[in-house]
Design a protein around this nucleic acid. Sequence first.
DNA 1: AAAGGACTTATTGAATACAAAATTGAGTAC
DNA 2: GTACTCAATTTTGTATTCAATAAGTCCTTT
Lengths: 245, 245
Amino acid sequence: MTNFLAAGGLKRGEHESASLHADIVSQLRDFIVEGHLAPGSRIPERELCEKFGISRTPLREALKAIAAEGLIELLPNRGARVRQFSEADIRNLFEVLSGLDFVAGQMACARITDDAIAAIEKMHLEMYAHYLRRELVDYFRINQKIHQAIVDAAANPVLSANFASFNSIVRRLRYSANLVNRDRLGDAMREHEQIMDALKRRSANELGLLMFQHMQGKCEAVCEYLRDQQTEDSEPRALLEDAIF
Amino acid sequence: MTNFLAAGGLKRGEHESASLHADIVSQLRDFIVEGHLAPGSRIPERELCEKFGISRTPLREALKAIAAEGLIELLPNRGARVRQFSEADIRNLFEVLSGLDFVAGQMACARITDDAIAAIEKMHLEMYAHYLRRELVDYFRINQKIHQAIVDAAANPVLSANFASFNSIVRRLRYSANLVNRDRLGDAMREHEQIMDALKRRSANELGLLMFQHMQGKCEAVCEYLRDQQTEDSEPRALLEDAIF
DNA sequence: AAAGGACTTATTGAATACAAAATTGAGTAC
DNA sequence: GTACTCAATTTTGTATTCAATAAGTCCTTT
């Protein structure tokens, strides 16, 4: 099931933070999301214990927690392995994300401050500039910030936590898909124009639907990208490693 | 974060099932959801170990997993305690549920079979009969089945798992709220009429919005109920124990 | 008598140890 | 040369043990 109120903890350096468990979970999650462990590969308990400087007990507890999040799967008597997401899985994830984006849009309209709208509009214009100059990394970075700002404006920690959880899985894919499918970028930019418009008018139903459809569009782009990858390349993961974040 | 693809395992009786871990997690979750442990109370590791006939290691692993689901919280050096949901928490949960219901409606329209629609309509009529006769338990039971059927029709395991996760927390409250607020029942029935209509016409946007608004309505009813409980009674949990399921 | 502190006890958190299952490898038979 | 079997080793799953933190109680002091 879902961890729906976990406070996304920052990584600690050397100094102790709140709890060892939370730290290990956070570190391990990042370690997997960042792609250090190939999807489908088994998780080497021993190595990770040495890497994190802990014994097996806390590591295994962290594994169970992350399995509950869905990032890894537990095979009976065969340990844990990194979840491998099929295209169907990705579609499913995106659909749920679309629903969360819908609520975010709905609720943001009712709760967002004028200042926050102004801040988002500023980011929007900045993103547009990057779009025109085809600066994809910056474009993508601000794009993510805008979506995050709208989700935050909904002022719902449960929503934010779940959005972050799902988004962390597909973020990398979204970036890669952007790199390949340039047509989609124009559509996305137009959709963002509409989103800004609806947000400024605080039209809840409209913004919700726009954000839903926008995310669905992203899904199609990513799935197209995945299909291309699989047909032309037997090692579909290779390119993903290039993507920053 | 969210466990978003955990296969909801059945409880085992005496015979061994897939894995001990999954069993313990499932049993412990039910144990908490069923209200055997009061919200806010600390979780007695030793007792539960004896109860389930296991040692502390697998129990603690289960605790971490359920904490990741959000049902309990981990206090550093003070063990785990059952999450206490404030009205704000409930609102947040309902909002996310609304979003999931929205997607469920959207996707169900595209994917549901004619037979499934017929089956839902049959349930709908049955529910209406229970509504007229004021048979609340049966009404509520079929109501849940209808919503589940629509979610299932969306054919998205990630959505289903998350919906089940959130729903398990608010289900009990919804039932109790129904008992008290009879006015809401009439509204809900009318909304269900509209939902059936949109579903038969396979009008995706319409159904999505209807289900979203329907869930929002439930949220208001539940929050009203909670406020009533808190003002007139210092022990707001007492009544909840009456609710079957 | 009340408040503060120290000591005792219980509970949590992590490491180690042990048992059971699975994977790997080699050897043998076909 | 290939496939199957059996043993050995690694790895997983659980129990037990040990250390550290918190809570409760009793005693002392003002």
